[in-house]
Amino acid sequence: MTLRSLLGAALGVALVAGEVSCVAYRGPRGVEAAIEREIGAELEREFGLKLGWTSTRLVGSLTRSDAGDEPLDLRDLTGIGVAVFAVPEGARPPRRLDARRLGLRGWETVIDVRDEGEQVLLLAKPRGGAIREMLAVVYDGEEVVLARLRGRLDRLIGRMLGAAEEDGARGARRALPVSEI
């Protein structure tokens, strides 16, 4: 079972259970428009999902029981927002996405990995002495993925750094808990 279908199932359960989830999620405000300015083209949204605490825990528990198949660690998450956009043909590939030009305030760039036209940016928003919120921006020339994660995320930094050291941008992308989307 892929994470995308798992998230879909969790969303169905969450909707039945009455938890408000947003299927029109497009990432943090302003980021989509900022990337569009960088590439000189309009992004086409392929997938968007925002899960609250209940549905995220549900996905976490489902993946935990299926841990043999899925290299995921969602147990530390309390919220997920994922938006996937297709990059249209004719878009101008940016040399690099600069986090300072994405219109994000209060976020710190922690890791920036680039490799053969693919880029993974990991930004963190430390608050109250803990890292409870992170944003991953992935660009590979064909797709843009925005993944906003909430929960206990301290360990994700070490995990992504290790993966980036081993296999560049692809490794960093795989280390994301939502990499299967």
């Binding site: 922690v110 890791i111 920036d112 990995v113 680039r114 430390p126 560049g168």
Partner: peptide
């Protein structure tokens, strides 16, 4: 097209 890994861990992180 080069492989680049940049890391910035500031005081709050």
């Amino acid at each position: 097209d080069d492989e680049v890994v940049e890391v910035h861990l500031g005081p709050s992180i």
